[in-house]
Structures are given as C-alpha cells and as structure tokens.
Design a protein around this nucleic acid. Structure first.
Lengths: 229, 229
DNA sequence: TAGTAACTGTCGTCCAGAAAACATAATTAA
DNA sequence: TTAATTATGTTTTCTGGACGACAGTTACTA
C-alpha cells in the first residue's frame, strides 16, 4: 500500500542537491492565501506551480449541479498545479486554501529552466505525476467496484496514514474532516457517511470525539476492505 | 473538449528535433506482441516505456472479483507505461495487446539519459502525464455525478473523436467495441449498455450495423450530456 | 458445415444508497 | 449571551442499475 495517498510521493525540495535547491528558492516567490480563498479555478491559465509551505489546500471540482468532488488535500511539502503547467493548459480543477496557507510559486519559464539545469528535477516531478495517475486509477477502480462501506473504510485508513498519530495501537486523526468532506472524497452523500460512521462506531472499529477520529481496530478495518468486493 | 481522450495529447516523437529523434530510435528497441498477449501486469517492475508503432493496447485493471476496468486503449503514436518508470515502481495495471502490436521500448536508464540530453522531452512527457491526470479526474467526476446514459453518450462522443470518420454529418466508428468493453470503460454492466444502446438507436441518435457504430445525431447526443446532471 | 464460442437482446427481482425532510447538537459571530 | 451558522443523527421513500437467467445471433475454427 502506498503511504502518501493523494499527496506527492516525495519531499522533492529536500532531496535536491544544494545548488538546485537554492536555484528553486531564487526563482520562486512566496504567496499567502487566507482561509477559504480560491487559488485557481477551472478555465484559468495554468502558468504556475505551487509548493505548500504551510496550511492546507483542497483540490476539487464542482459538477454542473454544484456537487463537490474532492480529489485531494495538499499539505506542507506537497506540490500542486503541476499537471497543466508544461503545456500551459487551462486549469480544470479548483485549488482552495482551507486554512491560512503559504506557498512558493514558480512560473513556467523558470520551471522549464530549472528542469534544463537539473534533469533530476524532471524525474522527480514525473514521479509525482506518475503517483497521482496511479492514485486516480485506484479511485476509479474503487468507485466502480466498491460500495460506500468499503470506500469509507479505505478513506479512514488513508487519512490515518497521512495525518494520523499512532498511540499504543490506536491511530488518531486530529485534523477534523466533516462528514460532508469525507462524502465528497469518496463520492457518497453526507447522510450515508454519517450512517456508516456510526455503524463503524457501534462495531468498535472507530471512536469519534468531537474534533478527532480514532481508529481502534485497524486490523478489522483493513479486513473489511479485503473481504468486500 | 480535449480531442484525444485517453490517448496522449501529442505525437511526441515527430515533434522532436531531428537529433533527439534519432537518439530515441537508437536507444529503443522494437518488440512484437501477438493479439491477446499481456505486455505487463500489476506487480511487474516498471522499467520500460513503450511507444506504439502499430496495433492497439488495452490498459486496464482487474478487481479482486474479476471485474475488468478499462482505463484506455493506446493506438499508434501513443506512449504507455510512463507512470511507473521514473521511480522504477511496480506496475499497478495490465497492458495487453488487443491486436497484433509492435512497440518501441526504452528502458529507464536510457530514458533518463534522453531527458538529460533534451529537457524538451521531459516537458513533453509531463504534458502527456498531465493530460492523463486530467482525464482520470474527469472520469472520477463522471462516475460520481453522471448516470449510465450520460456516461455512455460521452463514451460514444469520445470514441467518435478518436477513431471515427465523419461523412456528411454522420460519424462512423469502424473499430468494433463490444458492449462488454464499453461497459468496462464506463463502469456499467453489459446488459445495461445493451439496453441503453438500443434506446439510443430507437431514438435515432445512433445506428449499429454489425461491425460499426454510426452517430447520426451528434448534436442531440451532446445535448443529452449537458442536460443531464 | 457443423459445432462451439462469443456476442446481443430482453426480462424479472432486488437492494444500495440517493433524496428529502426534520430534529438536535455544536460552533462561530456579533 | 444570544442569535445564526454549520455539523450531525435518523427515518422514510423511491429508483437506477446490478444480478441472474435464457434465448436468439453472429462469427470462428477445425
């Protein structure tokens, strides 16, 4: 199982040789976005790559009827906005700061210069893109073959891996995701998520206390995934 | 709307400067696969990139219960196997020749050498990867918000764009896709696809004659998509 | 040229989960 | 502190489309 789900697979900046790292910092500039502000929207020209320094960014889309589909959340050390930059294509998704967020931006020209100076970066970026493709494929598969129970169990496990703290067997997810957000991550309705969460709780798989979710029985949650479908 | 759907967005080889193209040919070697042979499977080490010369390759996955999920078909001039190569990761999908197929292969080392000689190639490849990500995201959205009618209408339009011939208003898809294959492309069952195809036919949207599908009323098919959801 | 295999057409049955509609917390703002 | 949001809990109805089961067609292949 891949560790960092919808996130980039590697902390590229810190794996870079010293001089490339410096060059990256030189060529990028810092920007700040306050909570709930939109960083880019579908239709915008995709000329910037973003690297998260602090905060959290939601990558999502809206259907014609207003339903939100969340593809992933970006945390510090993640890149976003990569997919459209090389062709200068239009954005097809929204990026929105869900907390006050600081990012580094680098524009297309500088990015391409960076690549030509250090092909190693290109390879890193391709790894990130590759990992995103694999993730998206897995999501497609899950939407087709798994029911909501399974998708939610999977989501909990993934969230646990990304932003959970393990403490004698119990994994606690501190960052609060609302049922609505979880629903939008797995393509379900809020009500169904509420129901299934409570079912999981009644069965002793998880425990919810206001601001956090605890995975009590990781093993059984995993089993739930494998024996579905 | 993007023209070349699940396919790569550009004919990279022929956009390349002469000497890089030659270098590409030098460093790659030709392989042949007969119809129905598997090129790679999940779990294989992903050390090769493939470029299709002739034939057709299906990129797909199988769920635990044996259901096939088709991500795309590769045609001549398409790359596949890109996503795992830069990290040398394991394959997570199947690639299978659905016709007798000839490909050029290039291994990781040579590929990285190629990139370092010509950063332009890296940019091209990133464009392909980016386009795949966008496509995958659209598929995810469609699975979540659209019903089978809409997804099938969309599929027909896309197939028309990729392998259709236009002839005074009628777009004919010569390449035969079975209902089962179409179902596996949109995450539906074969029976439902059969039913909806017949409904489309009864409504004068399409016409099926043995080996080909004709789109009679493209405009109405498009309208069907936009007024759903 | 039959015989088998792979597609297509059509029907019932059934159920996961969407949709709608409220009631009740729990936060946030003012 | 109180109003106004925003999040959760629950129940009831309704339906798209999966699933299973066959019969009829077309197309390989031997």
């Amino acid at each position: 199982m891949e560790r960092r789900w919808y996130l980039s697979a590697i902390d590229i900046i810190n794996e870079l040789p010293e001089n490339e790292r410096l060059f990256f910092y030189q060529k990028s500039h810092k920007k700040k976005y306050s909570k709930n502000s939109v960083i880019f929207s579908p239709g915008d020209q995709g000329n910037l790559i973003y690297y998260v320094l602090s905060g959290r960014v939601k990558i999502y889309n809206l259907s014609e009827c207003g339903k939100e589909i969340i593809y992933w959340f970006c945390q510090p050390k993640d890149f976003f906005g990569l997919a459209e930059v090389c062709g200068g294509e239009m954005r097809t998704v929204f990026a929105e700061a869900v907390e006050d967020t600081e990012v580094l931006c680098i524009n297309r020209t500088n990015f391409e210069e960076l690549i030509s100076r250090s092909p190693k970066i290109a390879v890193f970026i391709m790894r990130i893109l590759g990992s995103r493709i694999r993730q998206a494929h897995e999501t497609i598969k899950d939407l087709i073959v798994c029911d909501v129970h399974t998708r939610l169990a999977q989501l909990l496990i993934k969230l646990g891996q990304i932003c959970g703290c393990s403490h004698n067997g119990v994994i606690t997810i501190e960052k609060k995701f609302t049922h609505q957000e979880m629903a939008n991550m797995i393509g379900a309705t809020r009500t169904t998520v509420t129901e299934v969460m409570n079912e999981f709780r009644r069965n002793g798989l998880i425990e919810c206390d206001g601001s956090r979710i605890s995975i009590l029985d990781y093993a059984r949650l995993v089993k739930l995934i494998n024996f579905s479908d």
